[in-house]
Design a binder for these strands. Sequence first.
DNA 1: ACGTTGACTCCTA
DNA 2: CTAGGAGCCAACG
Length: 117
Amino acid sequence: MIEMDEAFFDRVYDQVRAVPSGTVCTYGTIARLAGYEGASREVGVAMSRVQSAWNLPCHRIVNAKGTLAPSYAFGGKDRQRHVLEDEGVTFIDDDTIDMDKHVWPLSERPRQMSLFD
DNA sequence: ACGTTGACTCCTA
DNA sequence: CTAGGAGCCAACG
């Protein structure tokens, strides 16, 4: 059977669950993998509706710049950073993830593909 | 059914 | 580096 109405949220959450520990994923990537490319903003809305009991690793979802979610999420950026660091994610700043090392999946990296770099 | 809104992204100055 | 604006898509009142 096919989910129809809540397909968007369900697919988004399913993709969030698919993000491995120690990596991070951007809203845009989640949207794309869920089949809603360009709906990055809606992914953010979906995250805001996540409840703790769902066990979604929403702390692994960050924006394209690698900065953490606003303070009102996770009870503060420090909390989110701590969780990510505990999973092995490294930061270049207190609020900025070292994206090129931890973004997932590798093939979804945002326009950084220099073949000869 | 239309207009607003949002844990976004990209481009320009 | 920061600031502002436009584009994008789905949910909500």
